[in-house]
Design a protein around this nucleic acid. Structure first.
Length: 262
DNA sequence: ATGGCTGGTAGAACCAGA
């Protein structure tokens, strides 16, 4: 059986419901993991997804900020919510798919402006979030796909200008090292780079502030789909939908989609 | 030219994103 799983930081699922529907209609994705839904669970727009046949949904939302959701045509079981930030923010939800595969949908904190744990507590929270993810990952014993907005662009070719971004939160050496420790803790396979090897250009985010995101092309690869080592060989395809950055009222992130043979 | 924008919420000389 072949299934497609996508991940997209949507920056308000209510405000962008039109383009979420367009994405599902045009791609036929089986399971969609959303980040930054920005909606409490009781106000989630269930009806639109129900009408499109996505009858299985797991939510971890909160008021105003953050929030994650899994929208699926396939049954979802065993919702788990890790609080890897240890402050109650809604940044993770996990599910078990038919056949047993674990799917983890995560929204790593952005980390504020200054890459300094003393001057900027949010930066420390980001590093601590990743350290808690790493401890979870070390104990993991089942085939798992972890997807989402990691808010780190690890490789030099994951940003438009490596040297210019060395002090910019999302690409600093300490973040890259901290993410590498997470990756090493379970030998996670970075599926984006399996299918689009470095140094090929591959971005998933462009700032809203550029007058013309495509012309300036100051992108970063902040979003990721990583597979545990026993699952990685079952990945058949990986795509990002860069066209979605041009859709009406776009998110500043684009969707990424993986095809798995299960 | 890394903030020039954006959404949610309040009703901001706001917060957060990254």
């Amino acid at each position: 059986m072949s299934i497609t799983i996508a991940s997209w930081n949507i920056n308000s699922v209510r405000f962008r419901l039109d383009i979420v529907e367009r994405f599902l209609r045009e791609t036929g994705t089986d399971v969609l993991c959303l980040q930054e839904t920005k909606v409490m669970d009781e106000a989630f727009p269930h009806a639109a997804f129900e009408a499109m046949g996505y009858k299985h949904r797991l939510l971890n939302g909160q008021r105003m900020h953050h929030g994650v959701a899994i929208i699926s045509r396939l049954p979802l079981a065993e919702a788990r919510r890790h609080d890897w930030q240890d402050n109650g923010e809604a940044r993770h939800i996990g599910a078990r798919l038919p056949g047993g595969l674990l799917l983890e949908n995560v929204y790593v904190p952005a980390g504020g402006d200054l890459p300094d744990r003393e001057a900027n507590p949010k930066f420390g929270q980001k590093l601590d979030f990743l350290a808690r993810m790493t401890r979870w990952s070390e104990a993991l014993r089942e085939p798992t796909l972890i997807v989402g907005d990691f808010n780190i662009a690890p490789l030099e070719c994951d940003v438009w200008n490596h040297k210019a971004l060395l002090d910019v939160v999302s690409h600093t050496p300490i973040e890259v090292e901290t993410l590498a420790r997470f990756q090493d803790s379970h030998d996670w396979a970075d599926l984006g780079r399996r299918f689009v090897p470095a140094p090929e250009r591959l971005y998933t985010w462009w700032s809203y502030r550029a007058a013309n995101w495509k012309a300036s092309d100051r992108g970063r690869r902040l979003d990721h789909i990583w597979a545990s080592p026993e699952l990685a060989p079952q990945a058949r395809a990986f795509h990002v939908l860069e066209d979605a950055r041009n859709w009406g009222k776009p998110s500043d992130h684009i969707p990424q989609i993986v095809t798995l043979d299960l």
